[in-house]
Design a protein around this nucleic acid. Sequence first.
DNA 1: TCGTTCTACTTGAACGATTTAGTACAACGA
DNA 2: TCGTTGTACTAAATCGTTCAAGTAGAACGA
Lengths: 356, 356
Amino acid sequence: MGNVTLRSVAEAAGVSVSTVSNAYNKPDQLSAEVRQRVLETAKTLGYAGPNPAARSLRSQRARAIGLVFTERLSYAFSDPYSVGMLAGLAEVAEEFQTGLLLIPLRPFDPERPEEVEASAEAMRAAVVDGLLAYCLDIDHPAREIAVDRGLRMVATDDKDPRMDGLVLIDERGAARQVGEHIRRLGHRSVGIVVDSKVDSSAVVEVDDVQHRSMSFSWDRYDGFREGLGPDVSVQTVAPPGHNSVEAGRSAGAHLLDRQDRPTAIITVSDVLALGVLDAMRQRGLTPGRDVSLSGFDDIPAAADAGLTTVRQPIAERGRIAGRMLLDPDYTERRIVLPTELVVRSSTGPATTSPTR
Amino acid sequence: MGNVTLRSVAEAAGVSVSTVSNAYNKPDQLSAEVRQRVLETAKTLGYAGPNPAARSLRSQRARAIGLVFTERLSYAFSDPYSVGMLAGLAEVAEEFQTGLLLIPLRPFDPERPEEVEASAEAMRAAVVDGLLAYCLDIDHPAREIAVDRGLRMVATDDKDPRMDGLVLIDERGAARQVGEHIRRLGHRSVGIVVDSKVDSSAVVEVDDVQHRSMSFSWDRYDGFREGLGPDVSVQTVAPPGHNSVEAGRSAGAHLLDRQDRPTAIITVSDVLALGVLDAMRQRGLTPGRDVSLSGFDDIPAAADAGLTTVRQPIAERGRIAGRMLLDPDYTERRIVLPTELVVRSSTGPATTSPTR
DNA sequence: TCGTTCTACTTGAACGATTTAGTACAACGA
DNA sequence: TCGTTGTACTAAATCGTTCAAGTAGAACGA
C-alpha cells in the first residue's frame, strides 16, 4: 500500500511520468481523453495523488505556513481575540489552499534553557513557507532558527526588525484615547490591569519599571498613562496566570477590595475586563455608576456586556497577515489598522463623593 | 540564500554528505571532533539544518499530524472542551517533536458540492503522518481522500469503521446517569438543549426523529431520554449557531419563557449550560431551586458556576489520541475513558408546587 | 602472523515528484 | 513546396535528504 507512484500510474496508463504529473497540475497541457484515462487508471491503482513531500521538495513550496504553539497559545485559544485572528488567517489560508502548521514549542524560560532549546528544534523540522510570529517570545531560540532558515516572517505584535511584514494597530494612540476618556469623565484614581508574562500565584502590584519586563502590553500601558495625564493616581496590578476572565476576576477583586478603591479600572484586554465585571457584580457594584470599566479589543462579548472598549479589526489582522505571507501580489509590508474608541455603559462620570 | 545544502557543507568541511547528515541525526556515529567541525562550517555557511521537505520525502515521515480546520472548528476553539483536548494533543506532539497541521476546509454542505470538493484537495497536499478526525463531517469528501492516502486516522467521536483508533467515552451511559439523577430529584417536565448542525436563525423545537439529522450529539440525547424514562415529558430545543454560551442563552430563554416552563434543563455541553445559566440569572431564577440545570464535560468554568455535570478526562482524550497517532509502542486501538457524574448546586429536588 | 571485530567514515542508490528542453506530427499561410 | 507555428506528449535532470552496504585502518586475542 501507499507505494503507488506517478511512475506506476504512467506505466499502467501507457504514458510518460510527466504526463501523469500534468494530468494533476496542468490540465490544459494534455488532451481531455488522455487526462481522463490517466485519472481513471490512477483511481483503479489506488493512487491518492502526488506525494506531498516529494512535491514540496521539488517545487520548493510547502503549501503551509507556521504558527508557533506554546502553552501560552493554547490558553490564547480560549481568548476570542486570538480565535478571531486565527479565523481571519485561516480564511486566507483556505483561499490559497494552504495549511496552518502549529509548531509545538516550550515557552521561553531562562531557567531551563536546554529544554527550550531542544523544543526549538521543531522549528527546523517544520515544512512551511512562512511563519506568523504570534506569541513567540522575542528571546526564544526558535526565532533564530526561523531567521536562519530564511523563512518569511510576519508579526501582528512584534518589535523584531527582521520581520518581513507587520500588521499593527496604533496601540499607544488607541490606549491614549481610553486614558483621555477616563480622565475627561473626572476620574482621578484609576486601576490598571495588565497581563502577566511571569507566573505568580497571586495578584501583584506593579510599578512602571517592573511592568516593562513583566507584561506583553506595555505600549497599551504607556498609552493609558499618557491619556490619563500626570494628575491621576494610578494603581497597576498583574493577575496570576494568563490572559483570561478568571485572571481578570482576581485582579478586579484585588482592586475593588482596596481601602482606596479606584473610581475607574482600565484593562489591557476585554477578556480581563469581563473578569473585572464579574468581580464588580459579586460586590453589587454597577459598572459605569459605582466604578467605571474599560477594556480593549472589542470582542463580541464586549457588546453584550456593555463594555467600553477599543475596537480593532480583529479578523482583518489575521487576513492581512495571511496575505502578506501567501499572496505574492500583496506587496505592502507594514500595515497599521484603524481603531475606534467605543463608549458603552460601563464607563460614566466619576461620582462627586469619591468615598466608599 | 537558502541554497546551502548538505553537500555544500560536506565539501566545505572536507567530509562526505552522509557524515554531515549523521552530524545532525546520529551524533554517535562520528567522532566528536569531526562533528564539531561539521557543525561549525555549517554555521559559517549559514546552513539552517536539513531541509524538512527532503527529509520527509526520504524518511517517509512528515513529523506532523493533521487536524481538520473548518469554520466550525474555529468556533470550537472558543469552546474550553476543544481547547483542552487540543492542549492534550499538543503535549504529546511536543514530546514527539511533531507539528500539528490545521487543514482548512469548507464545512460539508450538500448545497454546494463543488466548493467543498475543491477545498478537500487541501487534504491531498497535507504533509502529515496521520489525522485526528475531529469535527470532520462523516460525508465530507476530505475523509475519502484521507482514506485513499492511507493516512492513519484517529477519532474522538466518530462512527467511521475505517478509523485506526478511537478514544471514546460511554456517551450514552454517562448521559443516562444525568437523566436518572434528574428523574430521581422528582422532575417530570424537562427541557433538553442540543447543539445544532444546521444553520437556523432562531431556536427550533426538535422531535426525536429530526434530532438524528440535526445534531452531533444524539448518543447523549438518547442517554438522557433513557435515564429520564417514559414518565417524564421532554421538550427539546436546538439553538441557532454553534455550540456556544450565546447559543445556550437563547435556548435557555426559549425554554424558560414557555407557558409550561420545565422544572429542569439538561444540555449536551457545559458551554450551552453556562448560557442557560445566564438566561436564568436574567430572569431572577436560582439554579437548583427554581429550575435545575445540568451540563456535560466538566470544563473548568463548570466548577466555578456550581454546575452539575459529567466529568470526562478532557486533556487525556487528546493525549491518548496523540499517542495512538505517534507512539508506535501504544498498540491499543480503542479506548473508552471513564466518566463521573459530578453533582453540584445547580440541580435540586423538584418543588412540590410546580407552577410558575 | 593472521583472522576477527570495531570504529569512523564513504559510496551510491533511493525517496517521488516537477520542470526544462526537447521531439514528432499536424495544420497553416504564402 | 517549404518554412512556420502550435499541440500533445516525452526524456532526463533535479530537488536535498536518508540509508543500506561497503571499506580502510586500528586494535585485539590467540
